[in-house]
Design a protein around this nucleic acid. Structure first.
Lengths: 334, 334
DNA sequence: CCGTACTACGTGAACGTTCACGAATCTCAA
DNA sequence: TTGAGATTCGTGAACGTTCACGTAGTACGG
């Protein structure tokens, strides 16, 4: 049946159903929610009327009286970059286990920054998880006192934060490169800043510590941009024998560039990616990468939200700030 | 009049703020929503009180009185399969443009079927978009008279449906294979059924039409499963010179299997994927694939939801049923 | 001094649902 | 016949916000 159109556009309410079935509100409630204290006959009659009128209860009225079912917002730069869905998937899983639901906003397309996503999300959710970059403070103010968990954000400007130990990760990578006899390394950074270039800084420090000269270039964080950026670099730096990329997607572009330049990987040049997305295994050669346990990241974010919501953890306190570590997965490319 | 805000778990309401600022509800509303008719001094005082009390307006009360901001549910099998985030991204984009928001449920992890996702989503959204498989009818009944747009579902059991012209796509692929002189083709299908094996059936028909013998095998739709499945096939079918995969992810696994078996692509064996996800370009060799315009798919789904919500299109009518076509993108692998 | 127009603020009502009761009606044994 | 208990159903209240008014106060021109 289509929607009953005596008042077109208007949604049927519980009272319409009650009138149609010749009963009261409460009886309709009982019928719809399978509550006891109602005869089988009336239950069926009411349900039939509800279907005919196209009635479905207002989630607002329900939420108002029953207390909110918590829903968390997830602000993500770009669902097209495989890292983020992998992360989102683990957030959705952890949230679903708690009976929460997840409202996703992807601010990659269009011109909007993360703040637009947050302002869209803010009136709709009880908590926020997101890659907020340097906008974490503004995001927190948009959310008022509701928990905000920022990932990879500089400083502790949001209620909770999850960071990554880049010095540690960079150390892993450069130790590995040094121990396999690489002499000249380049780091292909993202030009989007990210958390104030902390990855680049960590890599630079680690390279210095390992005594390996480091070239640094920038490109927008996509495979094609990375491929194009590498082209010029290879001519300018002939001695290059290792490439570290900002993330796995850029590393994929690097692999393509090296392939078309006729350089063998890892023979002529080693390549290491970052983040550990499943894509890495599918590339040729398979990508050596600094991997995150992606499920752990999502779980940690949701755990933190739960702790903040329940008050078990004080916003901004040390307990609300986690640091996760990458792990070096050695495959074929380095 | 003054409510005790000392009850610790209780959220602050507009009345708490009003009492703290010594004004009425309505003045708080005016201050929070930047409405006219309030002096700058009181506005600031009220806003300060709101921040101090950690007040944020109840989205339920707001929605109840102001009329719903429409939110659509997106039920997706597996965010880990790159196809779905690519699709989700375009849905989120189209929905955001309309001021809607998107609640995502990923039912891939855990044991739950798509129906669990729908039942979680149903009380939270005004419309549903999803890969519902054969559960489209049940999904529709869970959603009552609210619009449901099922993708790739058999039959017209939901209000709206978006299908794909598999015979056409399979024709494209097999014509291309035939015209490049392939003699023996295998189709690696998903064992998840999908829409009753319609991809496999279409490929079989097209192969018959092209006069090319076809072998069919099945595997779960992941790259590793595909790789493992191909291993055996290559020994059993030595004459095989072309492989068509259920989707691009499986095609990636196929490429790996061929590579480790020492078969060159496309020299010894051509490979064609399906769906056209960005991943394909990053593989070696780059994947020839039957591509969907993924942004168009998301846009079509959201357009259809809008038409159903507004009543411009009758649920279940021919206008509510779209068919999209794949396009053959020839890259290196075939 | 009056009336008019404007500013700043407050009060009843409504949104649609569930909760906590209370009021019928029916059953059945003493 | 009666009264207790179970079954079935209905009524006020409440959730937290905004809308449509209403009402003071203030400014200003006549």
């Amino acid at each position: 049946m289509t929607r009953s159109a005596d008042a077109p556009g208007r949604r049927a309410t519980i009272l319409d159903v009650a009138a149609a079935a010749g009963v009261s509100r409460q009886t309709v409630t009982r019928a719809m929610n399978d509550m006891p204290g109602i005869s089988a006959a009336t239950r069926e009659r009411v349900q039939k009327c509800a279907v005919e009128l196209g009635y479905s209860p207002s989630r607002f009225a329900k939420g108002l009286v029953q207390g909110a079912r918590t829903s968390v917002g997830l602000a993500i730069p770009d669902l097209t970059n495989p890292y983020f869905p992998a992360f989102a998937s683990s957030v959705v899983e952890a949230a679903t286990q708690r009976g929460w639901n997840v409202v996703v906003d992807d601010y990659g397309h269009g011109t909007g920054s993360g703040l637009d996503a947050v302002s869209r999300l803010a009136p709709q959710v009880d908590a926020l998880i997101g890659y907020l970059g340097e906008h974490a403070a503004e995001a927190q103010s948009l959310m008022g006192s509701r928990p905000v968990v920022g990932l990879d954000c500089p400083g502790g400007s949001s209620a909770g934060s999850i960071g990554f130990d880049y010095p540690y990760a960079a150390g892993l990578a450069l130790d590995h490169l040094a121990s396999t006899g690489r002499h000249k390394v380049a780091f292909l950074d993202s030009d989007q800043g990210g958390p104030a270039g902390s990855r680049g800084a960590a890599v630079a420090a680690a390279a210095a510590a390992a005594g390996i000269p480091l070239a640094r270039i920038h490109a927008s964080p996509s495979a094609t941009a990375a491929r194009d950026a590498i082209g010029g670099l290879l001519e300018k730096e002939p001695g290059l024998d290792a490439l570290l990329a900002f993330n796995d997607v850029m590393a994929a572009g690097v692999l393509k560039a090296l392939h078309s330049a006729g350089r063998s990987v890892p023979g002529d040049c080693a390549v290491i990616g970052m983040d550990g997305i499943p894509l890495g295994e599918l590339l040729t050669p398979e990508l050596t990468t600094l991997a995150l346990d992606l499920r752990a990241v999502g779980r940690a974010a949701v755990d933190l939200v739960e702790a903040l919501l329940s008050g078990a953890v004080e916003p901004g306190s040390p307990a609300a700030s986690l640091t996760l570590r990458h792990e070096l997965i050695v495959r074929q490319s380095a």
